[in-house]
């Protein structure tokens, strides 16, 4: 076991459009260490979502993914893994939490069924009854008070925060060592965001998992990630420990980003 769980070097994504090829991601390096949350931050269109979809093999066929290497510890080369095989990687090796929880949950299956389908899809030979027990424990683990009721219900009966908790439980059911979250709290209320992020960072810390956290929210990065990668126009412009990058940014763009978030003291001076 190495200390790097995910090692991505020189990732490129070229997307073919009717108006020519768009180089959406241009040589991105990412190293996610064990037990670490690596934040990827940037504004819309910077290629951060495309980057992780490229790693997960979730891009449409008109996108071409290239890299020097995409190495997942304990599994091997993701770049050489065929699309079909990637389905096994997702869920078992990498848990994925998308922005919109309702997009990740099947509206016509009960929550219980979705846990069971996950088990079936990965050929775990876990029976219905056992799957329910596991699901019950997983929902309990993400702070849901009455797991039995949620298991019997459907996605539309859940609030946004509850649905995201269910998605997180699903993503961690098969104990993947790496979690990838794409804007997991965007669109949720601030109080719910704080609860969900506390939950996620707790899950990572307690099980020595690792996480790749993609967000546009500098507050989420500053409060929860250990290291951060700042992206602009498909490239990494700055990376390093959060304590360094966010406190003393070197790149002009990072400085601009951080300055556009109001700092508390300054504001009190302005309003006072």
């Amino acid at each position: 076991m190495s200390d790097t769980v995910l090692d991505v070097r020189g990732l490129t994504v070229d997307i073919a459009t009717p108006d020519g090829t768009v180089n959406a991601v241009r040589g991105v390096d990412l190293h996610v260490g064990r037990g670490e949350i690596l934040g990827v931050v940037g504004e819309s269109g910077c290629g951060k979502s495309t980057t992780i979809k490229g790693i997960l093999g979730l891009l449409p066929p008109n996108a071409e993914v290239g890299a020097e290497m995409i190495e997942l510890d304990g599994y091997g080369d993701l770049l050489a893994t065929p699309r079909k095989k990637m389905r096994e990687v997702r869920g078992r090796r990498i848990g994925f939490v998308a922005q919109n929880p309702f997009g990740s949950l099947n509206p016509i299956y009960s929550i219980e069924r979705q846990f069971y389908e996950l088990q079936k899809a990965h050929g775990t030979k876990v029976g219905k009854k056992e799957s329910r027990e596991i699901a019950h424990a997983m929902l309990d683990g993400v702070g849901i008070v009455n797991p039995a009721r949620v298991l019997d219900g459907y996605a539309h009966q859940l609030s946004g925060g509850m649905a995201q908790r269910v998605v997180i439980a699903l993503a961690t059911t098969l104990s993947p060592q790496l979690l990838i979250a794409d804007e997991p709290t965007t669109g949720l209320d601030a109080t719910v965001q704080a609860q969900i992020m506390d939950l996620i960072s707790g899950l990572v810390r307690s099980e020595q998992r690792s996480m790749l956290l993609v967000t546009h929210d500098l507050g989420v990065i500053a409060q929860y990630a250990q290291r951060v990668v700042v992206m602009l126009d498909g490239e990494v412009v700055e990376h390093g420990p959060v304590m360094e990058v966010m406190v003393d940014p070197q790149h002009e763009y990072t400085r601009k980003l951080i300055n556009s978030v109001p700092k508390r003291e300054e504001l009190h001076d302005v309003t006072a």
Binding site: T191, A194, G219, A222, V242, M246, V247, I258, R264
Partner: peptide, 8 residues
């Protein structure tokens, strides 16, 4: 619930 962009 505010998340400050300053990690300190």
């Amino acid at each position: 619930a505010r998340l400050s962009a300053d990690p300190r």
